[in-house]
Amino acid sequence: MNKSIKHHLTDDLLMAYSAGSLPEAFDLIVATHLSLCVHCRARVESFDAVGGHVLEEQTDSTAMSDVSLAATMALIAQGASAPEPARPKCSVLPTPLQDYVGGTVSDIRWKPIGMGVKQAILPTTKDATARLLFIPAGAAVPDHGHHGIELTMVLQGAFSDEVDCFARGDVEIADEDLEHTPVADISADCICLAVTDAPLKFTKLMPRLFQPFLRI
């Protein structure tokens, strides 16, 4: 657990996570942040309690069929599916991310995208994109704006941009109004999880040409 997280998720994101209405890529970054942030976990568990209330209020309920209890007991008799094997501990990737990478940080299949920056796109539904970014210490990600919302969470190292400095566990929430140039802290290579619900728009021509190839 990280007690020094300064940049948290917003209430609307946490409520949408609790309600189950986010794209998979957003669920992934929320679950990853919650793994490190006890503060947001308390908030999301409280939003779950709101969901519990909504469920409890379903009193105009459609009756279950007569055989449904027996059918459920039969399901139970089949036994529970085997629990997932425990993951090896990884100091960079919390378990939700390990499930998507299929291992620890050394199993990430990076693809270079120029200037020493690397990325790995994670397999989620297409309504939003999740990717891991590797930014060498001291390097910058090209100046870019956003069509939709972009969430960037630091997993290792730190980065700074026009807004603030972001360290492990911190999430930067960027929208249409923000054009920024994140620069990795000089002390360590920076690894981030970045999630977008629309393609980024780069302000310089070259990156824009590459965009279809990079799927960013």
Binding site: G20, E24, L28, V30, A31, T32, L34
Partner: peptide, 25 residues
Amino acid sequence: ATWVFTIARNKRIDVLRKQRRPEPE
């Protein structure tokens, strides 16, 4: 009720939206 809600919600995401549901550590 809250616990049952979270199980039902995850089932909905799994079955209706055919989507994985990442859960925190």
